[in-house]
Design a protein around this nucleic acid. Structure first.
Lengths: 145, 145
DNA sequence: AAGCTCTTCATACCTTAGTACCGATTTTAT
DNA sequence: ATAAAATCGGTACTAAGGTATGAAGAGCTT
């Protein structure tokens, strides 16, 4: 639309210049020059309108120091050394969470006797005498969270 | 330089056009139109040459994982909340290391009774029922190492 | 000086933890 | 298939943990 409008102006200008050079024949160079300048500017204007601004992206890396997420990973080596059974390890985990033997019996649907048997065997394997020592050792060896 | 070269072409063209319209007087509109189109294109070309691409800096955050300096710092806020006495806190620390009441009595040169009194008061303040729960809570609140 | 908290210790009582020893299934590995 | 390990459960006993209550001295504040 803008361009067609420009063409309209162009036509008008042509008529005007045509009339002009009939009057002043020698001034034709000047008019042509003016046309040249005008259309050059028009071209520049069109170009700036049509061409999207060329954007050159320069990627700048900004270093951000992030503390390693304190993901707990069990020390499998140490855990294997202890040679605990599934049940024993399960019970150890509950012990470290502060559960009593009675609690554990309820949680695992076992009798108190069974839990006591497991804990006793567990302590022998861990080479500790009390559950509090088991907790301390388990946390130190990183075999529980 | 390019522009002066263009002006040279322009001068040449003017002479050519001037000569042309002397020969074919009626064709002036066409020549003017050609001039318009040419200089429009010239303007567009100049514009594309002149406009430098805008440089846009894109800052990309690069995460660098830094191992947590595992310097343990006690959570003073949580510790203050509990309002423990020196002795109680001292005993709590020994409990978390797996010591029995008898051990603690020996270590602190106290009677077993005294240790029991302290632990009992400690558990009330910590709102727990057993030493294992105290351990779990103390570690969770990071008030002991 | 009176009041407060902290500390120490004691007795009595109850609960939980832990050991020892046993028997019985069920899994797992050879 | 057989042996070994793991699981489950029980009784009886001892050890340790925990509660309740009281008492007394030390140190601090008002």
């Amino acid at each position: 639309m803008i361009y067609s409008f420009m063409l309209a102006i162009l036509v008008g200008l042509l008529k005007w210049f045509q009339w002009k050079f009939l009057i002043v024949d020698n001034a034709i160079d000047i008019y042509i020059g003016l046309i040249a300048v005008f259309f050059t500017l028009l071209g520049i204007w069109i170009a700036t309108q049509l061409t999207r601004p060329r954007v050159e992206k320069v990627i700048v890396e900004k270093e951000i120091f992030v503390p390693i997420t304190d993901e707990f990973t069990i020390n499998k080596t140490e855990l294997d050394k202890l040679n605990l059974t599934k049940r024993e390890y399960e019970i150890l985990q509950l012990i470290t969470k502060g559960h009593s033997n009675a609690d554990i019996a309820s949680l695992l649907f076992l009798s108190l006797s069974t839990v006591k048997t497991h804990t006793s065997n567990l302590f022998v394997k861990m080479n500790v005498k009390r559950r509090t020592q088991a907790i301390e050792k388990a946390k130190r060896l990183q075999i529980v969270e």
